[in-house]
Design a protein around this nucleic acid. Structure first.
Lengths: 247, 247
DNA sequence: CGTTCGTTTGAAAAATTTCAATGCTAGTGG
DNA sequence: CCACTAGCATTGAAATTTTTCAAACGAACG
């Protein structure tokens, strides 16, 4: 189970875990020997659906994914955006029925790891279990931060906050720098994530551009005024619980 | 460390864990021998504060607690309400810095369990670790459901949904029945939890009363029309991941 | 070159907040 | 036992934010 792409897959996972936890050599080795099948997925494809009972976890190697739930009357709520290194459905290891869906935003490469292998690994290495557990806890901390936005911040503040968050998450795995990153999220998605209409998102983005805070064109975000953006979003990176701070 | 109240404490914890997971006899025994100190707290007292680095977990034995974060200009976001059996700061076991606060809503009795003891227990019993992990995952599932409300539901739907959720959570630990439960949450708290002004909460509650859905007086909630309330809140209990369904 | 999907614009409508005052109730001290 | 207070609930009116609707525009793709 160690084809070239599988080794790449597990290296990616180790990098991600080490951005939020510490691993021993033995633990790293154990992760490297996890079995996995890699797959390439098209944009807009579902990886797991609300109501499913998956038997494997999905490690995102390349591209973007997102978690969401469809309500009636065309309403949709997006819970999170995921980038390479993430295991967006890690929770399925202990929560057997999906209470939301997971899909791709872009073309994506994923590694599928059987739950059974993950359970063996976590049973045998409590330190790895703790690292995975911690990952799901950071996930929850991000949910809380989004709740703060949806509950108590203006549309402007919410969008600003999301931009700061995505930039730092990307930077932590080496996919962003110089206040510039890829952001393959439509204004409709942005609205569905932040609880806004796409029309309003559009207007707020224009306002942000007008104030010289950002540039956002063809899926590329450039943060022109980091400090101002942070202030507008009342952003404090503590909740990301990154080991090496990158703000 | 096995005074009468400590045994009561761990029995409470076992009951809670068994509402969402399955434990073996040996695991139950191990939990019963956890060390703990019980404390009585006054209403409105903080158990842990944003920025703290706690060294123990708090098992709620009696009374209500809640998690929240204070923003500037009098804004506040409440993330969750907690009832007996919950460990509201279980996450502190793997996330060392609090990114929000935990306080009491009513007078409360808590059992404090050192992190060290929790770590030993979870290292030695992967099944218990999995149960605790699962508990934090359900916690996250509830956050997601609140996000759906704040992002995509009307004030009416959000409040209805919260009432359904709290009722089922209480019922699962034997603290509610016959569509009636205690609810020591002010209209201000309700607003801070759901992202609404207290004034608007008040108006929506009147509307709910007018429609004969609920009665809410002196901290007691009576759900007069369960089916209608579920429909209004678009409530589906799947996300609570209770073992014994109680809807 | 025609679709399709996403962005942009304007105008009107709706939900919700804010402000400011008043009422209510339980607990406190006299 | 009663007045007093603090915290919560309620009300009305005006202001604001955000949504909805409807249409036009633009870029990418086959």
């Amino acid at each position: 189970m160690t084809s070239a792409s599988d080794i790449h897959a597990m290296t990616m996972l180790i990098r991600k875990l080490e951005s939020i936890a510490t691993l021993s050599d033995e633990e790293r080795q154990a992760i490297l020997s996890l079995p996995a099948k890699t797959r390439v997925l098209q944009p807009g494809q579902d990886i797991a659906r609300d109501g499913d009972t998956p038997s494997q976890c999905c490690l995102l190697l390349d591209g973007w994914a997102y978690r969401y739930k469809i309500l009636g009357e065309g309403r949709k709520q997006i819970f999170s955006f995921h980038i390479p290194g993430d295991i967006p459905d890690l929770q399925s290891l202990h929560i057997h029925t999906m209470d939301h869906s997971l899909g791709t935003l872009t073309q994506a490469m994923v590694a599928l790891i059987p739950h059974e292998a993950m359970r063996e690994l976590t049973t045998r290495y409590p330190g790895i279990a703790a690292a995975f557990w911690r990952d799901t806890l950071v996930d929850a901390a991000i949910f809380r931060e989004w709740m703060v936005g949806m509950g108590r911040k203006s549309a402007f503040g919410r969008i600003a906050h999301l931009f700061c968050e995505m930039y730092l998450k990307l930077e932590a795995v080496g996919l962003a720098g110089e206040h510039r990153c890829r952001l393959p999220i439509t204004q409709i998605d942005l609205g569905d994530a932040l609880g806004l209409s796409n029309v309003h998102v559009n207007r707020v983005l224009q306002e942000m551009r007008g104030k010289g805070l950002i540039t956002l064109r063809s899926n590329t975000l450039v943060i022109e005024a980091w400090d101002d953006l942070i202030r507008a979003g009342e952003f404090d990176p503590t909740y990301l619980h990154l080991q090496k701070r990158a703000a």
